[in-house]
Amino acid sequence: MDPRIEPYVRASGFYYLTQIGYTRSDHRLLQALVERWRLEFNTFHLRHGEMTVTLQDVAVLTGLPIDGKPVTGITDCDDWGHVCEDLLGVGPPAGNKIHACYLYLLRDLDDAGRYSWGAAALAHLYRALYKGSVLGERTSAGSHGFYSLLQVI
């Protein structure tokens, strides 16, 4: 990471997440976990008992803040490419789908560090597990959800 941007990444609350590195997805493991997800208790039903992912797990493993303001914002926007250009100076490549609903919260990086990004990541994971277990959506490279967190738990 360029030392000139490190203070900004730290202020945003995402610095430790940048230190995790790349994790190759084990799709069979992830699919097996999704199949064992029980919505009634938000737990995985395993042979040895029940297991879940907690906010503390997210905080310890990713360094994302779990205290602070809730991560909420506009999710219904027709032109995310324009939003990206306004906030980042460049739009996404043609044909790319992006989720830019949290970009508004990153306008002020000092303020961005006051949000509970860890809680948002966990909620996003739980939603993906719901979709996988109830709706039958398969986990894949294009799946939405913080599935890489499940591989390190």
Rank of each mutant, 00 (worst) to 15 (best):
R38Y: 05
L109A: 01
L39C: 08
F14Q: 03
V83H: 05
V53P: 03
R4M: 07
A112E: 05
I153L: 15
P70W: 14
Y8L: 15
A100T: 10
A32I: 07
C77K: 07
G95S: 04
R114T: 14
L106P: 00
C101L: 00
A141W: 15
A120P: 01
K97W: 10
A128Y: 05
I153F: 14
N96Q: 06
T18P: 01
A11E: 14
D111W: 01
L17T: 06
V90T: 04
R36P: 06
G113R: 02
R47K: 15
G13C: 10
G95L: 11
L125K: 02
E137A: 06
L122W: 02
W80T: 12
L150M: 15
I98K: 00
G113E: 03
V34G: 00
N96T: 10
R24C: 10
V83Q: 06
L61N: 07
R114W: 05
T52Q: 12
D67Q: 15
A120F: 15
A100H: 02
W37D: 09
A112P: 03
R36C: 10
D26E: 15
A121I: 04
L33H: 08
V60C: 04
Y147R: 05
V71E: 08
V53G: 02
D108S: 02
R28V: 13
W37I: 12
L105S: 00
V9P: 00
D79M: 12
Q19H: 07
D110W: 08
D108F: 08
V58M: 12
G81W: 12
L125H: 03
D78L: 15
N96D: 01
D78P: 12
K69P: 06
S116F: 02
V58N: 00
F41V: 13
W80R: 05
L122H: 02
G136L: 14
L103Q: 01
F14C: 08
L125G: 01
P3C: 05
P65L: 14
T54Y: 12
G13M: 11
